[in-house]
């Protein structure tokens, strides 16, 4: 039996790595991937809690998170294609027209 806290620590570590990737990566697609990584980390915590509490609601939430992630990926990647087309660059620092 693996204690539930192991899963939660793993989830926390993955989430933290996601945050680090989000802050440090410069490519807009990779930044988007970092968001997916954080969502995945949260999903792991949900499933672990669902196991620990003996309830299925956690898994239902994960199901919804995956659906929302799919919708988000569709719209987000469309936006990224637009940015690449208009700016000829995927570097977030070159997409800074609103910056003072």
């Amino acid at each position: 039996m693996v204690p539930i806290s192991y899963y939660l620590v793993l989830s926390a570590v993955l989430f933290g790595l996601g945050v680090v990737a989000f802050v440090f990566k410069r490519n807009i697609i990779t930044i988007f991937m970092a968001i997916e990584l954080m969502l995945n980390a949260v999903n792991l915590a949900f499933v672990a809690f669902s196991r620990a509490l003996g309830q299925l609601q956690g898994q239902v939430f994960v199901f919804f998170v995956i659906v929302v992630a799919a919708a988000e990926a569709a719209v987000g990647l469309a936006i990224i294609i637009l940015i690449a087309r208009n700016r000829q660059s995927l570097n977030v620092e070159r997409v800074a027209l609103l910056k003072l």
Partner: peptide, 17 residues
């Protein structure tokens, strides 16, 4: 996060489902 988990859930073993 690790601190919160260590304090809150360290003793919880998963329910045998």
């Amino acid at each position: 996060l690790a601190y919160a988990i260590g304090r809150g859930a360290s003793s919880q073993a998963p329910a045998a489902a």
